[in-house]
């Protein structure tokens, strides 16, 4: 961004990068070591069939619970980012409502095994076929493809943390009351990410590739919303009675 305030010092960027990395590590749900130790544990064929034979609404509910758990960690991540809690309450809610699932999708690459196209879910590594009964193959395939493409960038935890914060602090979300305040925070985060990538001697194209992910993430989230509303149209009582309240609040 060309109109960046010249007052951001290197020290400030280093400090922000440290704060965001620490916040990420404290709230990442699963440590990298835990995930790596579990990669050999993929669901066996009979376990896959067990998920496939669950009633559609039961599997939807399970996934809604898992997404909600992951989102709660993202809320904690946001709260620890310098400046986030200084935004007005309206904007904190707007940013999390729009961005928390996007960060969950980003975080998915940490729990993704590219070797066999599986993701950590419900205690083991699961391939896309585990989610067949949900009836949204397109969304599942897109989520797996996104995780795979994120993995191919080989981001460090620090870089992933800064990219997650950059997404969460998107200043173009609708209904922000203090847009310019969010904009400044996002610009600072982008500079910290840029600085980190340079420090790690990553090529310029990595940042370009990451910026391109913004629209993919938005597409994934809108597809999730559409899929949920199609499900809700058929099973309104299940959603009302059995889905986590936070999930309904965010996506209802």
């Amino acid at each position: 961004s060309g109109d960046m305030s010249p007052t951001v010092s290197m020290d400030e960027l280093e400090h922000l990068a440290q704060n965001i990395s620490k916040s990420h590590m404290e709230t990442c749900q699963y440590l990298q070591e835990e995930l790596q130790q579990s990669t050999w544990q993929t669901f066996l064929q009979d376990e896959v069939e067990c998920y496939q034979s669950k009633p559609k609404e039961v599997m939807w509910q399970l996934c809604a619970v898992k997404i909600t758990e992951a989102i709660q960690y993202v809320v904690e991540f946001a709260k620890r980012i310098d400046g986030f809690m200084e935004l007005c309450q309206n904007d904190q809610i707007v940013l999390l409502k729009a961005g928390s699932l996007e960060v969950v999708f980003i975080r998915m690459c940490r729990a993704f095994d590219t070797q066999n196209n599986t993701v950590y879910f419900d205690g083991k590594y699961a391939g896309p076929e585990v989610f067949k009964v949900l009836g949204c193959d397109d969304l599942i395939t897109s989520a797996y493809d996104f995780a795979k493409s994120m993995c191919s960038l080989h981001l460090s935890e620090d870089e992933l943390a800064l990219f997650s914060a950059f997404i969460l602090l998107s200043s173009d979300r609708s209904w922000l009351q203090e847009k310019s305040k969010v904009e400044k925070l996002q610009q600072k985060t982008q500079l910290a990410l840029q600085h980190m990538l340079q420090k790690h001697q990553r090529g310029e194209e990595i940042l370009t590739k990451l910026i391109c992910k913004v629209s993919t993430l938005r597409g994934l989230c809108s597809r999730h919303t559409e899929t949920l509303s199609a499900f809700r149209a058929v099973y309104p009582d299940i959603v009302r009675a059995h889905f986590p309240p936070l999930y309904k609040e965010l996506f209802g």
């Binding site: 809610i93 707007v94 965010l250």
Partner: peptide, 17 residues
């Protein structure tokens, strides 16, 4: 917005542990 997002608002209010 706060009214429609009581749980999220509550999570934001809780102190970080």
């Amino acid at each position: 917005l706060k009214e429609k997002h009581k749980i999220l608002h509550q999570l934001l209010q809780n102190s970080t542990s």
